[in-house]
Amino acid sequence: MAKTILFVEDSASVRQVMNSTLTREGYDVILACDGQDALTKLDGSKIHLIISDVNMPNMDGLTFVKAAKQLPAYKFTPIIMLTTETQATKMNEGKAAGVKAWIVKPFQPAQLLAAVAQLIQA
């Protein structure tokens, strides 16, 4: 059975690229354009991994992560942050919120797929 990934990204181009990449690898992908939109997708259904941008309109990625971790069904769901943000303070904030990996754009799709496989199997 295919694993399900929630991909949260405000950039339509990155969303499109990663949707294609993850789908080709056999994952079921749920797309969301910001944190607020992503929270509506957390309806209790099984999600094996969350990938989220940090800087987004309406609700930023770190606020979304903190909100998602409050939901019992997604408390232990691994989360990858995918962002242009390189400041250590933001990374530490993400780590404290329960983020498992921090990937800085631009990234190779193969790198992301390796991280996804590692965290989904863990």
Binding site: M91, W102, I103, V104, P106
Partner: peptide
Amino acid sequence: NENNITFF
């Protein structure tokens, strides 16, 4: 970015 993945 050469090493742009950080695992926590």
